[in-house]
Design a protein around this nucleic acid. Structure first.
Lengths: 130, 130
DNA sequence: TATGGGGCCTCCAGTAACTGGAAGGTCAAC
DNA sequence: GTTGACCTTCCAGTTACTGGAGGCCCCATA
């Protein structure tokens, strides 16, 4: 299948797919005219990458996951370790965002938000409160 | 004060401060020998930027906030609007991360994590479940 | 046979926000 | 006078794409 079809079916932009080829995540064959030909396995890999990316795995994570995916002998523990590490990162990010949320909403609540120039938000940012 | 001192006091790397000058967020004066000289107002601005950045504001947000900060006549409503928009973004990001967290922890829980190759995590990523 | 419109190709440049490193000038102390 | 810390600029790299230019290729229709 051509790039447009695989793009539609994998739910990724064609440009992104070319980029994935460039960085070696996939290696579609070529027709005589230079057009890429995608096999079903390419489609599967692309769907896999797209899904992992949307779950916040980095490209490098994807590379490792694909290697595990391709390796029929790897232990599920290897995959689980990767997923757990990523889960921990997600937890940290959520905690950080929550802290930001608290600070900012306190500042927003304290601000009159009217036509007067007094604003505790700017003061709070300047002073490092929260 | 020199860049190292302002860096220490603002809690930012010197390199970052040079970068902030390059993109026009600050404009320290120079000594005859070319060294940057930072005034107290520069320090305040840098601390302000560092704080806003750590709360997830983009550099562009910072530019706007600095302009509001410098403008004694602006209404606090302007600042509040910016902060609220940012708060909404934070909320969205947290929701997205929570969704990832749920999906991933379900997959991790379903995985035996032993020496056998069976792994629902890879299957889940491939199939787009969750 | 010409032409029009899509689809495909490569290559270049840009994004956000730094970060690292090389090459070299400056300054204070010993 | 020579360390060693500190300062300077400039260049390149990071992540994961995205946009655009310029130019084939293919098919259908007039």
């Amino acid at each position: 299948m051509n790039i447009k079809e695989v793009a539609t079916r994998a739910g990724l932009p064609a440009k992104t797919i070319r980029y994935y080829e460039e960085i070696g995540l996939i290696a579609p064959r070529r027709q005589a005219n230079g057009y890429r030909v995608f096999a079903e396995t390419d489609l599967h890999k692309l769907a896999f990458i797209g899904r992992a990316r949307s779950l916040g795995f980095t490209i490098d994570d994807c590379r490792q996951l694909l290697a595990l995916y391709d390796d029929k002998d790897r232990a599920s523990a290897d995959v689980k370790r990767l997923a757990r590490a990523h889960l921990a990162e997600i937890g940290t990010k959520i905690a950080e965002l929550r802290a930001m949320q608290r600070t900012l909403s306190d500042l927003v609540a304290a601000c009159a938000g009217d036509g007067r120039p007094d604003c505790p938000i700017l003061g709070g940012l300047a002073a490092g409160r929260g």
